[in-house]
Design a protein around this nucleic acid. Structure first.
Length: 823
DNA sequence: TTAGGGACGTA
DNA sequence: CGTACGTCCCTAAT
């Protein structure tokens, strides 16, 4: 059921004081909101809102009681929305604010809330985009930010709003004026030549930025300009288009310019925002230019605050005092402002990037040296990911066609079967139709699932997902249609993923990555910008056999073995429990020990490694039987889940779900196993307690890679789980990237120590490296791989070496030959 | 035509 | 109340 919070009644204006004037001292700051807390308050800001603002002001060294306080509307409007009819109140309020200037001359304004900014800044993009960017209202410096009401549901922004208040306090004392930038955006041909030749000769450290548009002719992009930032105030932009889409230069001129641009981009060390990924890819893919990108403000900003937004305007809103400029590009392209405003915009981007770099650089220097080391490491790693993006792989088109037709036939016949079993047609891909069929037509008991809301709360929602169907099918064995529908929908999803694959003429398949795409330090994968390829990290296992290395090479699939478990073992060691580490060092996987306890008896859970080793050898063949495999799968889920504080009911659910409803392990049994696991590794419960202590004492966790995760969310139970998964995820990603790093940068993997790679990286899937090499070079590959993976990991003072399990074969899905030979 | 959600794939 | 992601389809709003 959907229970909405009671909406306070709309009240008359007279009940509220529309404006609060500080009785004695006035600090020059006006705090202006949209409307008051509720209908009963007699002050512009009351109760929790007052408390939050008081705190925000205190951090900014302001006394909230010394601020002028008011709202646009003096009462709580219906539906918490200021309607057009209420515009009169807003006008009145604005007049009153200006009137107050006489007694209380303003030095800075703070505007609070999503409904407020547009009344003070014409054509504003909204607080989500423009918060933290200073502007003038009535000639006075102003900052828009979120309202305490909005902070309540988006608590992550608290620190950001704090920063905004800090800015306003600063402007109230020092004032604010926009820094003038010196941007050359309409250069002549000789000016361009002279500028580019200067870059080529002196090779200065500059910022660069492309602007591009998608071509209407197909899936490729065209550069509209390229800009060069000389310093934080000066930029030079070379435009390629004029009003109406015509070329800016003549063909002959443009050819000269492009040659010089290529040379400059390949020689000058460059800085940019996401330059190491987007610009570098754009230049390489479309222009065959390999940019010499050495610093990236997006990487640097992420290194300081992994949880925050990464856009340049957001970085600027935190670090700088520049006004909002991101709407300029849209305006220039839609024709609302002259076309060349796009080039000014680009020049501004370049200057701001340099300013952000200076500011983030300073901030990183104040952090432990490991943070900067990780930044540098990631900058280097970005080249590998760019290499993998450009290399891609080759999909076996014939096999793909066969797979698609096979699945098409299967889905058609299963759909027919479903129609017979259900006695009607059901579109399984429509959640709406599915729910209607289950809960209205068949009147089956409605199933719910918890869905996370934006504010972090959880709402139970009606669902017809696989789990709901599978549980219902268990309860109603006379309704075979349920399981048919559930499996059919999965198959259709798989088929449509395959149908969505677009490839190059010879099956070329590409992918893109964002090395800093997550809050934990993992990379995220995307379908490529060029459209030809797939998201590399969520390809269905059963279809991985379609992907080949191409060019006569074999596919090498190299997994880290139990990387998460090794990391958890390191954490437990510091907390005085080294059992997991000893188990792993003896070749005993925690899940295997749980299985032995199931097979032999609970008492073995306390046994030493020496006693368990022969026992495992004895029972290993059984664990490979169907019955044994079910036990082992269960124990893998329990051990993995318990590491991350999962509860027994969820383990039961995931086991049921993962096995496609074939493995139903009662909750009680999961709980028994969970407790058994905790009995062997008592340090885990210490870890559950230690993680929140760690976060609460500093507000952050430093990871093995050097990455620092600052926590902005509420200090709730959820945070503990986030913290528990953080270090294993981070360390696994780090180890995988280190292997790729060694392969890419060390001489032993280069022919003649120059350009050509012997083992070519193709893909990374969190704890898996995918590599291409020639099978006839397997001995050399073995040597190289041994060297590349020979490094120590360190977690909380414990050192260990995570083993790799390297295999190869004709394609991604069939890597069954050990690189070191079998066994 | 586009955004948001539901469902489902990966680690 | 494991965590971290991206993509496909459908639906409702524009």
């Amino acid at each position: 059921m959907n229970i909405k919070p009671p909406v306070p009644e709309e009240t008359s204006q007279q009940q509220n004081v529309p404006i609060y004037l500080p009785p004695v001292l006035f600090n020059g700051v006006y705090v202006i909101g949209d409307f008051p807390y509720d209908g009963r308050t007699s002050l512009p800001f009351a109760n929790a809102h007052y408390g939050t603002l008081k705190g925000l002001c205190r951090t900014a060294k302001l006394n909230f009681d010394e601020c002028v306080q008011t709202n646009l509307v003096p009462f709580f409007p219906a539906n918490a929305f200021i309607s057009v009819e209420q515009q009169a109140y807003v006008t009145q309020s604005l007049e009153q604010i200006v009137e107050t200037f006489k007694t209380h001359p303003p030095k800075a304004f703070i505007f609070l809330g999503r409904q407020t900014l547009r009344h003070f800044k014409r054509g504003a993009d909204g607080v989500d985009s423009e918060r933290g960017a200073p502007f003038l209202w009535q000639g006075i410096p102003s900052i828009a930010t979120f309202h305490p009401r909005e902070l309540y549901s988006q608590f992550d922004y608290y620190a950001v709003v704090e920063s905004d208040f800090g800015k306003a306090a600063r402007y109230a004392i020092n004032g604010w004026t926009e820094e003038k930038l010196e941007i050359t955006y309409a250069p002549t041909f000789p000016e361009c030549v002279r500028f580019l030749q200067m870059l080529i000769e002196r090779r200065p450290y500059i910022s660069t930025d492309w602007e591009s548009v998608d071509s209407i002719l197909g899936k490729y992009s065209l550069a509209t300009c390229i800009g060069f930032g000389i310093n934080g105030k000066k930029a030079f932009v070379i435009p390629f288009v004029r009003e109406g889409g015509k070329h800016y230069f003549s063909l002959e001129e443009e050819i000269v310019i492009w040659r010089l641009v290529a040379k400059a981009l390949e020689s000058c060390p460059q800085l940019g925002h996401n330059i190491c990924q987007y610009d570098h890819w754009f230049a390489a893919y479309h222009c065959k230019i390999l940019m010499h990108a050495v610093d990236d403000t997006m990487f640097a900003f992420w290194e300081i605050y992994t949880e925050l937004e990464k856009s340049l305007s957001f970085c600027a809103s935190i670090h700088l005092d520049v006004s909002y400029w991101k709407n300029e590009l849209k305006l220039a392209r839609s024709g609302k402002v002259p076309r060349d405003r796009e080039f000014i915009y680009n020049g501004r981007d370049n200057c701001v990037t340099i300013q952000v770099a200076q500011s983030t650089g300073k901030e990183i220097k104040e952090l432990p040296p490991a943070v900067r080391a990780h930044y540098k490491f990631n900058i280097r790693c970005s080249r590998i990911f760019q290499y993998m993006s450009l290399r891609g792989c080759v999909v076996d088109r014939d096999k793909l066609r066969d797979r698609v037709s096979k699945l098409t036939l299967e889905t058609a016949s299963e759909a027919k079967l479903l129609e017979e079993q259900a006695g009607r047609k059901i579109k399984v891909t429509s959640p709406k139709q599915m729910k209607e069929w289950l809960y209205r037509d068949l009147r089956l008991p409605v199933r719910y699932k918890p869905v996370k809301q934006d504010d972090g709360s959880i709402e139970e929602k009606e669902t017809a997902d696989f789990l709901a169907l599978a549980y219902t099918a268990r309860e109603y064995p006379d309704l075979p249609a349920l399981m048919t529908a559930a499996l059919l929908r999965k198959k259709i999803k798989r088929l449509s993923s395959l149908n969505a694959i677009r490839l190059g003429p010879n099956g070329e398949c590409y992918w893109n990555f964002n090395l800093i795409g997550t809050e934990t330090g993992r990379a995220s994968g995307y379908k490529p910008y060029c459209g030809l390829g797939v998201q590399p990290q969520n390809v269905d296992r059963r279809d991985r056999d379609l992907f080949t290395a191409g060019y006569g090479m074999v596919w090498g699939k190299c997994d880290l073995e139990g990387a998460d478990a090794w990391t958890v073992a390191g954490q437990l060691s510091l907390l005085g429990d080294d059992t997991m580490l000893k188990d792993l060092l003896s070749g005993l996987k925690p899940a295997q020990i749980l299985s032995l306890a199931t097979i032999v008896g609970e008492e073995v859970i306390g046994w030493s490694q020496e006693k368990l080793k022969p026992l495992l050898k004895l029972h290993k063949p059984f664990l490979k039987t169907k019955e044994g495999k079910q036990i082992y799968d269960t124990d893998k889920s329990v051990s993995h889940g318990t590491n991350y504080m999962m509860t027994a009911p969820t383990m039961h659910i995931t086991i049921f779900q993962k096995s496609k409803a074939e493995l139903f392990v009662p909750i009680k049994q999961c709980e028994k196993k969970r407790l058994l696991y905790l009995k062997r590794y008592p340090g885990l419960e210490k870890l559950y307690a230690h993680i929140p202590t760690l976060i609460n004492s500093h507000g952050y966790i430093d990871c093995p890679s050097g990455m620092r995760r600052v926590f902005f969310g509420r200090a709730d139970n959820h945070r503990t789980r986030v913290g528990l998964s953080l270090i294993p995820q981070n360390n696994t990603a780090y180890a995988t990237n280190r292997a790729l790093h060694n392969l890419y940068f060390d001489d032993y993997n280069r022919r003649d120590k120059t350009t050509s790679l012997i083992i070519q990286p193709m893909n990374q899937v969190h704890d898996e490296c995918d590599l291409a090499f020639h099978e006839n070079e397997i001995e050399r590959v073995r040597e190289i791989f041994t060297k590349a993976t020979d490094f120590d990991s360190e977690v909380w003072g414990t050192h260990f070496k995570i083993p790799f399990d390297p295999n190869y074969g004709p394609n991604w899905g069939e890597c069954e030959t050990g690189i070191y030979g079998d066994e």
